[in-house]
Each structure stands twice: as structure tokens, then as C-alpha cells.
Design a protein around this nucleic acid. Sequence first.
DNA 1: ATTAGCACTCGGTAGGCAGGAGTGCTAACA
DNA 2: TGTTAGCACTCCTGCCTACCGAGTGCTAAT
Lengths: 343, 343
Amino acid sequence: MLSERQLFVLQVIIDEFIQTAQPIGSRAISKKEEISYSSATIRNEMADLEDMGFIEKTHSSSGRVPSEKGYRFYVDHLVSPFRLSTEDLVTIQDTFEREMLEFERVVQKSATVLSDLTNYTSIILGPEVFETKLKQLQIIPLTPQTAVAILVTNTGHVEHRSFSVPVELDASDLEKMVNILNDRLHGVPLVELHDKLLTEITYLIRTYTKDFEASFQYLRAALFDEQPVKLYFGGKTNILMQPEFKDVNKIRTLYSMIEEEEEMARLIRTNSDGLKVTIGQENKSVAMQDCSLITATYSLGDKQMGTIALLGPTRMEYSRVITLLNVLSGQLSKTFQSWYQNG
Amino acid sequence: MLSERQLFVLQVIIDEFIQTAQPIGSRAISKKEEISYSSATIRNEMADLEDMGFIEKTHSSSGRVPSEKGYRFYVDHLVSPFRLSTEDLVTIQDTFEREMLEFERVVQKSATVLSDLTNYTSIILGPEVFETKLKQLQIIPLTPQTAVAILVTNTGHVEHRSFSVPVELDASDLEKMVNILNDRLHGVPLVELHDKLLTEITYLIRTYTKDFEASFQYLRAALFDEQPVKLYFGGKTNILMQPEFKDVNKIRTLYSMIEEEEEMARLIRTNSDGLKVTIGQENKSVAMQDCSLITATYSLGDKQMGTIALLGPTRMEYSRVITLLNVLSGQLSKTFQSWYQNG
DNA sequence: ATTAGCACTCGGTAGGCAGGAGTGCTAACA
DNA sequence: TGTTAGCACTCCTGCCTACCGAGTGCTAAT
């Protein structure tokens, strides 16, 4: 168990290191106002803290640096509740007050704000489970052989995809098809849409003609195949500016990882609700050894929609950042909530 | 004027440097099979080439390195027509044979292929002048106060934007409005659409009711305001792997520049037709001092559509890359041409 | 329990030295 | 006159050494 003083020393070391990125020596700590002990005393405490694995030396006679275990303990027990500056609050308020009516814009804007406020890299994972409902389906013929399918949700989200139309179908067939589908699928949540579409296909084939089948399969494929997860980034280069990335190879591997959207999505996706901090090696990725990832979920009602994440060095301003993420994910949820209620 | 032998020496130096990224010494050149002169002779030629500014020393006793003027001369006069390997050709063929029906996909895929084949970073500037025509306009009400406007072109390109609907308009008004617009605007090239829309607005206001005006302005704004240029990237991190970027600060500034899409678009946009090589400082950007940018335009008929660009170190495989860009921009033009003819 | 004092450790910087690659110049050669 | 062998010179690179300063661990005194 840690003594009061040890706790305090640990806190000072981490707070200080977060600010300066320099190893902290015993003398520096003993000189601090709040501390009335000599450097020798601090040295003893530091030796204990090191034995327990909370801090480390970079070399045998260097000052101490927080270990990952130290950071872990810090975020679990020491983070002081942070009061956001009014400036920050105003920035966030402004962002959400501007009228934005599209999911993409709101999310992209949030990512930008978050990265601007923190100087880290923000990543937002778009919604995967659409609690949103189908508003309208449109098929617009382009040429005799091609058409574009457009799907609109009650939140104003638009998906579209061009596809080939089998020769035996003409424009009026398509129109018929769309009308039937709109009748039967309006208001269906997108999660269920794929299955419902399949049901409709068999229904239509029975009721009308076999001709529809191929076309339907195209339509289904167009709207549901290889829909890659959408990531929204803010301040992609911010993290490169951190002093821990003065090594070219680290930058290269980290950056390659960031650009690998599939991989990033995998790392960020989470099923646990609420806020989660993943420190250094806890991230299952070599490229992110020196990084921490903080994720928070945003939701629609009680249904989790997506994740909002912040990527920084392990030496991160945890307390401030955690508060910011909480505020932002709350704002996001609130915004979507307001759309949904009116939909 | 350069002698035959000087030309040859210059070519060898540049070719070799492009391969190795190491300064080339006189001995290395004289040892080459095609060269029957001693290193001393080569040294003399090199001294002359240096006087003329085509090559440089990194320090007083180092081998030679091409200067920007050298590269300039090389691309203008020395690039040997390059025979693409059948492997490369097959890769490109495969890309364009797969059925793709959307502008975004074709372009994105091209960018990826280009960067994969070259190990540089590719950037494609989407079309700015739409020679494409309006196929259909849709307005779909979401809530009583909001609606989403969708615009489809004959090439299957879809733009959409949510906007606020003035309280005094209801869904049937919107429907009427859309019908009128579709009647009168079908087939209008997108370049003219904005102006035509304004004309229609005044017409409609005269013919129908004043109520439409506000709504129209919203619609117009939704579809035409702040439409940011769209850039498609391939291999964003490729250029970081080049040995010239072993300095952290260079990486940082270069990368910040790449992420600055507006700035990139400005650099890449060109009004001259065909292929253009911009070497090092010729790029008006500090971040790109050590980079070359090769741009080629693709077009629809005789109308220039967009630019396809490749960003690499000044030490670039110019001949191969130039051929590749020509082939790819040709393929792009061909693909769009085929769409257009059927539209 | 705390602290002053001291020996020790290690990173960082600077200087010196040897080896090597490459150059410029000169003089000899065809 | 063009070419080349030879040689002195330059500068980069790696390596060793010395030295300073910051910080530690330990011991002994308070």
C-alpha cells in the first residue's frame, strides 16, 4: 500500500513529467512549494516507488519517469477532476450551436475541435449499428444498363451506390420495384434492413416475376457489400509534433498504423460503455507502444452508436483530456438524440 | 552546349543516383561497362558539369549528386522512353477491367494503384468543372423542419445536403418545387446549374408564390456553398519511407503540408493540359523543397476534368513514373468517356 | 524518521586520430 | 590535343578518450 507521501510524490512526478517530458529528479521535487522534505527523503520514497514499479529510470543515474503501471495507477486513482477553462467550454458550445444537419459534418467538426483543443490526434468511429430508420429508397436509372441506388435515413444520412441493371429490366420495372420496396420498408431500422430486404426479395419473386431476382441481388449487394467503416480524423499530424516522436522510425510505423483505417477501427471499437483509457503496451499494437488511447462512446438513447477516441503519447494530459472526451461524447449523444426524437 | 560524353555522364550520374541515393564518384562511373574512359577523364567532365550547374558536391571531396537544374535537364532531354513491365501493365488493366460505376471508386482505385506501383504518394484532384449533367434532383423531407436535397448526375455522381425548411412550407410544397425543377433542369450541365437555378428561382417566384423564395435559397446554398475540393490519396506514407526523409522536422513539415488539403489542391491544380514535372524549389512551398511533383490531367472529351499527381523525392524514377502517369490518366479519361457517351 | 555528505554512475559533448572515398591538379603519354 | 597515371589534399565517418553535470544510493550523523 502506498503512503500519503508516496502518493503525493508519484502524483508530482507524473504531473511534472506530463508538462515537461523530462525525467524528474529528487531535488526538483523537494524544491516544490508544497513539499517540505529534503531531496534525500524524496530519494528514498522514489526508490520505493521504483521497487513497486510505478516509476522508472531512463539510466542508472537519471531522474525518474512514470512507468506504464504508474500511469495506470494515476488514471485509476490520482486524476484530479479537471475544470475546463471557460475558453474551452465556449469553443465546444460554439461548435454545437452552429446549425449542422448532417451526421458527417457534426462528427467531423467534433473531431477537429477535439484535436485542436488537445493537440493530440482524434479519431471518431462512425455509427455501425444504425438505430436509424429507412426514410426512403430511390433508384435512378442512368443508362439502360446502369442505375444508382440511394438510401436515405430519418437522420438525413445518405448512402448511394451505382449498379448494373440486368438487360431484361427497364426503367418502369425499376420504378415498380422501388415503389414496392418503399411501401414495405419505410421506417425499418437499418440494422434489420438487410434481412428484411432478403425477405422482400423472396416475396416479390413469388408475387411478381422471376425477373426481379437478379436485379434485387444487385441492389442488395450495392447497398450492403463492403461498406467500410468510416473514420473521421482530426489533427492527424498533431501527434507527430510530440517530443517522444523524434525518432524517424517511430513516426513511420505509427503513421502507417494511423493510415491503416481497418486496423485503427479495430483498436478503437469497443463494446464497453463509457470511457476507457488504454496505456502504451495495453494497446495490442507495436506501433502504439508509446501511445495512449482514450475512447468514449456516444449513443442514441440507450443504444451505443460509435466511439470517439483520442490518440496521444503515454505522457498525456489525462485529466483534462478525459473531461473533454466526456463532454464531447455527451454533446454528440445529445445532438443525435434531438434528431431522432423529431424523426 | 553539352558534349555527347557529358550528356552520357550526366545521365549515368542521375540514373545511378535515382537508384542508390548515394553520391556518385568518378571511379564508379569509369568502371561501368558502357564507359571506356578513366576516372580522371570522368573527373574532368564532372568538373565541367558542376561548373554548368547540373551536378553538385555534398562536400568538397564527395561524389556528385544531381542538382535541380540537373534533374530539370534530365526530364527535359534525357528521359528515355520507358517500357513498362508486363506485370505493371497487367496490374493497371486489371484495375480498370473490374466493373466500377462510380467516379469516387474509380479515382480512389487509380490513386491506390499508382502509389502501389511507384512507392510514392499519389494525389488525384476530383473534377471541378462538371461537364456532367443533372439527371435528377430529389428533396426528401426528414422532419417538418428539415429535408435532404439529393442531386444525381448522368455519371452516377451523387451530392447531398441537409437543409432547414421554412415553417410556411409543407411536404407537398416541396414536392411541387422539386417537380418543377426536375422538369426544367433535367440535362443541364452542372457548370450551368447554379446560374440556371437562380433563373428558375425568379421564375418560380413570379409564377407561384413568394413562399418558395426562402426555401430555394436554402436549397441553392445547400448544394453549392462551400463545396470543398475533393482529393483522393494513395500511399500517403510511402514518401516518408524514402531515405531523404530521415530528418524528423522534414517529415513533420512535409506531412503537415500533405494533410492541408486546400494547400495541396492549390499546388496540384493546373490549367495546362498534359503532363508537367515540378522539381524541388520549383514547387512554391518550403515543405516540398526536396520533392518533385508530377501532374497529368485527365479529361472528358476535350474538357479537362481533373489532375492526377504523384509526389516523390526529387530523386524520382522520372521515366517510369511519367509513363505510368500518362497511361493512367489516359485510362481515366477513357473510362469517363465511356460513361459519358452512354449518358 | 530525516537529512547532510560523498562516492559513484551514466549521458552528452568535445577533441583528437586513423581510414577511406573522392577530388583537383600536374605531368607524362599517344 | 585529348587522355591518363599519380599524388597531395579534403572531408566524412567511426572510434577512443576525457570531462562535466545531473542525479542516484548509501552511510552516518542528527
